[in-house]
């Protein structure tokens, strides 16, 4: 029998909402592992140990069930059900962990922070005023990039490789390489031209 995963998931959800016999058990056996893995990923990214895991799994189930499975019913079929489930479970987990652990956000949201701070631009350290001007110029230039280029830069700064970004944006690798190069070059030019102008202003 040909099966349509969308329809199956929909039917299963409807069964859960209606309290049909065995529907919830079926849901658990089908998606329990994915939920556990997602929770596990969140915990692992949080403290590197997955210590909160047991409590968090029950918290997630509680939230999924509440309001007559409201969060699950909100799935509109624009994605696979499993992708949606990972997204919802991820956010429930992160919210929970963030409430529990004030420092979670730092670890979780900006995994690149430490390495970023390691970037040292040699030479005379620029004054605050110069940096502020550079930042203003760059901000404007970033706004002027194409959405795709800007998105590439954003994902890049989150630590994704160009190859991963090609997967996320679903475009050929070459186009991500090109977009990344072009964006960086545009930003470099803007920065350089701005600095040069500053210089000639001072002289003139």
């Amino acid at each position: 029998m040909p099966s349509n995963p969308h329809k199956e998931a929909e039917a299963l959800l409807a069964g859960c909402v209606a309290g049909a016999d065995g529907a919830w058990e079926e849901f658990l056996s089908r998606y329990g592992r994915l939920i556990a893995l997602t929770v596990n990923t969140a915990c692992f990214r949080c403290d590197g140990h997955g210590r909160e895991e047991k409590d968090l799994v029950s918290h997630v189930y509680q939230k999924l069930i509440e309001n007559d499975f409201g969060r699950l019913r909100a799935w509109r079929g624009e994605s696979r059900f499993t992708t949606y489930l990972v997204q919802v479970t991820k956010n429930l987990s992160i919210d929970y962990l963030r409430r529990k652990q004030p420092f979670f956000e730092r670890n979780h949201m900006t995994p690149m922070d430490d390495s970023r701070n390691a970037i040292q631009v040699p030479g005379v350290p620029p004054s605050d005023a110069t940096v502020a001007e550079d930042l203003d110029r760059l901000r404007a230039a970033i706004d002027g990039l194409s959405p795709k280029q800007r998105l590439i830069m954003r994902l890049r700064m989150k630590g994704h490789s160009l190859r991963e970004i090609a997967g996320i944006l679903n475009v050929p690798r070459g186009s991500v390489f090109a977009g990344n190069s072009r964006a960086l070059e545009i930003l470099r030019k803007v920065l350089n031209d701005g600095r040069k102008n500053d210089h000639s202003d001072e002289k003139g």
């Binding site: 970037i119 631009v121 550079d134 760059l138 970033i142 700064m157 960086l184 930003l187 920065l191």
Partner: peptide
């Protein structure tokens, strides 16, 4: 590198 650092 400075572009990357500032963008970050």
């Amino acid at each position: 590198r400075s572009v990357l650092a500032l963008t970050a």
